Simulated assay, not measured.
Amino acid sequence: MRVLGVDPGLTRCGVGVVEGLPGRQLTMLGVGVVRTPPGDDLGPRLLAVERGLEEWLDRYSPELVAVERVFAQHNVRTVMGTAQASAVAVLCATRRGIPVTLHTPSEVKAAVTGSGRADKAQVTTMVTRLLRLDAPPKPADAADALALAICHIWRGGTTNRLTAAIRAHESGKWHSGGGGRSQGRGELREAEDVAEQDPPEQQAVAPRAAYGRVPGWSRSSSRP
């Protein structure tokens, strides 16, 4: 599975491509930032983001795109720019027929570090370890984009497989002719078994078990 993670932003839009499967070693294929000048008008900046993302889609041909879900912030101007860049990312992927999934920041943090309250430094540290990078990806937008891709591979892999099996079964795509048994039922059962054996909640805490405690994180700090 090859996933393009997009950390949307109008001034800096983080992008990162990760390849792998749930429970397997992940590989970073590329990481970077699409930048636009803060002083330019909105239209040209959005166009620059679109062109930059199109280049990444052309270069890496991802199977899926994971975008951070935008939440309201105190700075309305900032959140508006983030939402606009997010819409551009969704548009670019959808135009090519590439599935898009939105992940919340806390969901990404939990998947990568084991704690939904991890800070950016902790996320960057775990991304560096999980992808076996020689140095932490910079700036933080780039690291966040890789974290989004990792999150989707780990948390979205079995879910996507189960959903695809259900849809194919309901549409009769796998039904054999001549009144024979439906092959779709077997595929559906297999997908359900995978989801039961390796649910997203288990995948989310896997990094901490495999790589040790996240720097600066403790069980007490995760309590409300």
Rank of each mutant, 00 (worst) to 15 (best):
V67R: 05
A110N: 14
A83I: 01
A143G: 04
V123I: 13
E107P: 00
G114Y: 01
T27P: 00
V18L: 08
R69V: 07
V15C: 15
T82M: 10
A140Y: 00
C92N: 07
V33C: 12
R35Q: 15
L29Q: 15
L91C: 08
R51E: 08
I153S: 06
V18K: 07
V123Q: 02
V18T: 06
T94L: 10
P99H: 08
V67N: 03
D134V: 03
A85M: 05
H152T: 11
G43E: 13
Y60A: 03
V34D: 13
R129K: 14
R51S: 10
T94Y: 01
R77H: 14
L21C: 12
Q25F: 04
V123D: 04
K120V: 07
P22I: 13
L148D: 08
M80Y: 11
V76W: 07
P38V: 04
A87H: 06
P105V: 06
M28A: 09
C151S: 10
T27S: 13
E19A: 12
T128M: 12
L42I: 13
C151Q: 04
L26T: 11
A121S: 08
P139L: 10
P37M: 04
A89P: 02
A142V: 14
V108W: 01
A147H: 01
W56D: 05
A72Q: 03
V31Q: 14
S106N: 14
A147G: 09
T94K: 09
I153Y: 06
M28Y: 00
V15G: 08
L57T: 02
E19F: 03
G14T: 06
S61N: 08
E68F: 03
G114A: 10
P105Y: 09
T128N: 13
R132Q: 15
G30K: 02
G81I: 06
L133S: 09
P38E: 05
R77W: 13
S106E: 13
V70S: 13
A89L: 02
Q122I: 03
V79E: 12
S115C: 02
V31I: 01
R77I: 08
T82Y: 01
V108D: 02
L26G: 10
R51A: 09
R95E: 13
E50Q: 14
V65M: 00
Q25G: 15
A66Y: 01
A140W: 10
A87T: 11
T82C: 09
L26P: 05
G39F: 06
L133M: 02
R69T: 05
T78Y: 02
E50S: 14
R96D: 05
W154T: 11
A142P: 00
A149Y: 01
D58P: 00
E68I: 00
S106G: 07
Y60S: 00
V18N: 04
V67I: 15
A110L: 15
L91Q: 02
R96V: 09
P139S: 07
H152I: 05
D144K: 02
E19I: 08
H152D: 15
G97R: 06
V112E: 08
P137M: 03
A87F: 08
R96C: 06
V90E: 05
V79A: 13
L64R: 15
T101Y: 12
L21H: 14
V17H: 05
S86V: 03
K138N: 04
H74D: 09
L91P: 02
A118N: 05
L64S: 02
R12L: 14
R117F: 01
V65W: 05
L46Y: 03
P22E: 09
